[in-house]
Design a protein around this nucleic acid. Sequence first.
DNA 1: GCGACAG
DNA 2: ATCTTGTCGC
Length: 238
Amino acid sequence: MAAKVATRPPAETLSLWKREQARLKAFVVDRDTEAWQRDPAFSGLQRVGGVDVSFVKGDSVGACASLVVLSYPELEVVYEDCRMVSLTAPYVSGFLAFREVSFMVDAVRRLREKEPHLVLFVDGNGVLHHRGFGVACHLGVLTDLPCIGVAKKLLQVDGLENSTLHKEKIRLLRAGGDSFPLMGGSGTVLGMALRSHDHSTKPLYVSVGHKMSLEAAVRLTHGCCRFRIPEPVRQVGG
DNA sequence: GCGACAG
DNA sequence: ATCTTGTCGC
């Protein structure tokens, strides 16, 4: 009989997970901590990484945890790590990290010749999250590396909605690099919608993961886009 | 009850 | 995440 991951965790588990998110959230740094982040050309940055856990078709447990490192600004793959893993938690919106982050942390640990200025792109959100602590924050705090959350779809949280007005703002993004802020209910900027290149209509949703300002995160994301999806995430996903 | 729901 | 069909542009 094939092993299966529970459909949805019991309420007690979700409660524990929320508590863990609240505890770790206190360690998030949402500003630039590295010298290269303030440089107009990101001089000093040499490595950008991407992490992802991709599924095996027809299997609810088996998955492949991957980490790639690319040179910057050339965006050529210089390191790849892929390992088969067994998932233990189901996907629940708002709790993606509890399904994937431990495998990402393991992959980062295996990267022994760790580049001094590595920054990680995470397929998912950072502070643009139900409780302000998405998977990109979670990975950042656990690894102490700068992390950027890049989501392909808007997570509608804290007053954000995929409304007519939102779609109109998307229409007004004309060139690659154009962006507009995503304001939460309290007037806080949670993230930015970014047109990642000239020939992409559908924006990316960029938010701070850890050790980086939103401005630097958006600018670097744009700098890593040859196509709609930033190269570190595109190369790690397949 | 209904819509929404990162990956 | 996955699947599926159609359509457009190069």
